[in-house]
Write a protein that binds this DNA or RNA. Structure first.
Length: 495
RNA sequence: GGUAUCGUGGCCGAGUGGUCAGGCAGAGGUCUGCAAAACCUCGUACAGCGGUUCGACUCCGCUCGAUACCUCCA
């Protein structure tokens, strides 16, 4: 459990040593999707980022309770200004029950996250299932005097809060600036201050999603569900709260304030935020026509995609950048990732079959190098989850593997075992990559391939290059690549 | 306009006050019947302008540029 993991805390704007409140237990809350549309690239990044955190904390021996919410209530469609519920709008269009829509897209989300090999969190609570907790939370804030009720709606009193605490401490905003920048919008007359946000909103007559509350039939404010569910499942104090940088303000800022107001203290020790995704240098947005869903990525069915990209290519590509950097998607960059990933797994397959070959005197000592690489990988992960440096080190190992395979270098049994262990630990367990290359590896296929390659080998020995090349080309068409090496030929699935 | 993050070689992308990231692409070589794969070698990149320093891509300032967010509600 003694680890030297450091992570960047948005609250302090520096890397801090990770020390959970109640080791070995660790609580992590991450903002999940609003389920009113098909999952897209913007969903993949936080999911994979915090999957990496989840996996690594577990690798270090922590008992992690990972909570990721599903938002299925009370959110407005962006370009509408009538205050209609996002899900309600969609439901009317499709003639479906709002919950049916939420269920459908939640399922889609799970399917695509599984394809990306993102582990399911420990708990995936839905906002609609936690109305009581949310209402109780509002009551607490009202009781502490930091909220007020007007016409059935309840608002958070930011000015009052700010007189005692600091609204803006997380995002670095100053209340005066927020007020100075205020635009005059309609329907704000209820609020004492334009910066105040809703904790509970009275539903308009045509509003489909509504729940009874002491104040009105209505729905909870957006920031509320995370405060309520985080507290419910992780307690009043927990370790990590994550999400995309776009949620920093106002969502997380307000969530922090809600907890302070309701509980008398803040709840989160470490705030983590992943950076955003851009496409060809532009932000991803529906209006820009570069809004690409995961489905389109996997099938290649989007005008700006030159080809389909497998889930692992996407995952590997995301992990090749540090989570706090912006990440730009382009065909060129994705193709580079695809090839790199293929090389990584090709080396892994060689490694799995490799046997130790002591060369006795003059043998190159890999032991220290392999240990150094393994240490460098842990060091990188301990330095705020630096997956790109882990990957760079793994490629160092790839070179050793290939050199040994080419009989240019030898390797001891101990080193071989250490290398296999490191590869498995980091590639599979921590980075969460899967080998998509191997395809059908059944004994049946292996037997057939052995036979085919034997026939080809005998024609090669007779210098019958016609037959030999015919076999190779035919196999290539089936996406089986034949590689001729010094001790015969090997094969692999994939282009 | 405000806040935040950032600007690295053909592309993507780490990192650091004074040796190296790494991947992809490209060039040359080794191997090979050919090809593929693999291995070896190669690029003197750090937005611009000043300043601090013996020395800055790395620290400070300014300029330019990029991305996200900016009270209803999400």
């Amino acid at each position: 459990m003694e680890s030297s993991l450091f992570l960047y805390n948005t609250l302090s704007r520096r890397k801090e040593k990770f020390e959970p409140l109640n080791p070995p237990f660790t609580g992590m809350y991450v903002c999940g999707p609003t389920v009113y549309g098909d999952p897209h690239l913007g969903h993949a990044r936080p999911a994979i980022t915090f999957d990496l955190v989840f996996r690594y904390l577990q690798k270090l021996g922590y008992k992690v309770r990972y909570v990721r919410n599903i938002t299925d209530v009370g959110h407005l469609e962006h370009d509408l200004d009538e205050g209609e519920d996002k899900i309600a709008v969609k439901a009317r269009l499709e003639q479906l029950e709002p919950m049916e829509v939420a269920q459908y897209y939640a399922d889609r989300y799970f399917i695509f996250m599984e394809a990306l090999n993102v582990k399911r969190p420990s708990i995936e609570p839905r906002a609609s299932g936690h109305m009581i907790e949310q209402i109780e939370f509002v009551k607490k804030i009202l009781a502490s005097g930091f909220a007020y009720e007007v016409n059935g709606s309840v608002y958070f009193d930011i000015e009052k809060y700010n007189s005692k605490f600091n609204y803006g401490k997380l995002s670095g905003r100053v209340l005066e600036d927020l007020l100075a920048n205020t635009r005059a919008l309609e329907g704000q007359d209820e609020k004492r201050n334009p910066a105040d946000f809703a904790l509970w909103k009275k539903a308009q007559p045509g509003h489909i999603m509504r729940w009874p509350s002491p104040w009105s039939d209505g729905f909870p404010g957006w920031h509320l569900e995370c405060s309520a569910m985080g507290t419910r499942y992780l307690g009043e104090n927990f370790d990590i709260h994550g999400g995309g940088m776009d949620l920093l303000f106002p969502h997380h800022e307000s969530e922090l304030a809600q907890n302070q107001a309701a509980l008398g203290h803040e709840s989160v020790k470490y705030w983590m935020h992943n950076n955003m995704v851009t496409i060809n240098g532009q932000k991803m947005g529906k209006s820009l026509g570069n809004f690409i869903t995961l489905d389109e990525f996997f099938s290649g069915s989007h005008a700006s995609l030159a080809q389909a990209y497998s889930p692992m290519t996407i995952r590997f590509f995301i992990l090749q950048a540090h989570y706090r950097s912006t990440l730009d998607f382009s065909n060129e960059a994705l193709q580079a990732a695809e090839k790199g990933l293929k090389r990584l797994f090709a080396a892994f397959e060689i490694l799995e079959k490799m046997v130790a070959r002591d060369a006795g005197a003059g043998m190159q000592d890999h032991g220290s190098r392999i240990t150094a690489i393994r240490d460098a990988c842990y060091e990188a992960m301990n330095d705020d989850f630096n997956s790109p440096v882990v990957i760079a080190n793994l490629f160092e190992m790839v070179r050793i593997i290939n050199s040994v395979n080419d009989k240019k270098e030898s390797i001891s049994a101990d080193d071989l075992m250490a290398m296999k262990q490191t590869f498995r630990d980091f590639v599979f367990d921590i980075l969460g990559l899967k080998n998509e290359l191997s395809g059908d590896n059944s004994e049946y296929v292996k037997g057939l391939m052995e036979l085919v390659l034997k026939i080809r080998q005998s024609s090669r020995e007779k210098k019958d290059w016609g037959t030999s090349d015919q076999i190779r080309d035919a196999l290539q068409k089936l996406e089986i690549t034949v590689k001729d090496g010094k001790d015969g030929s090997s094969w692999e699935m994939g282009k």
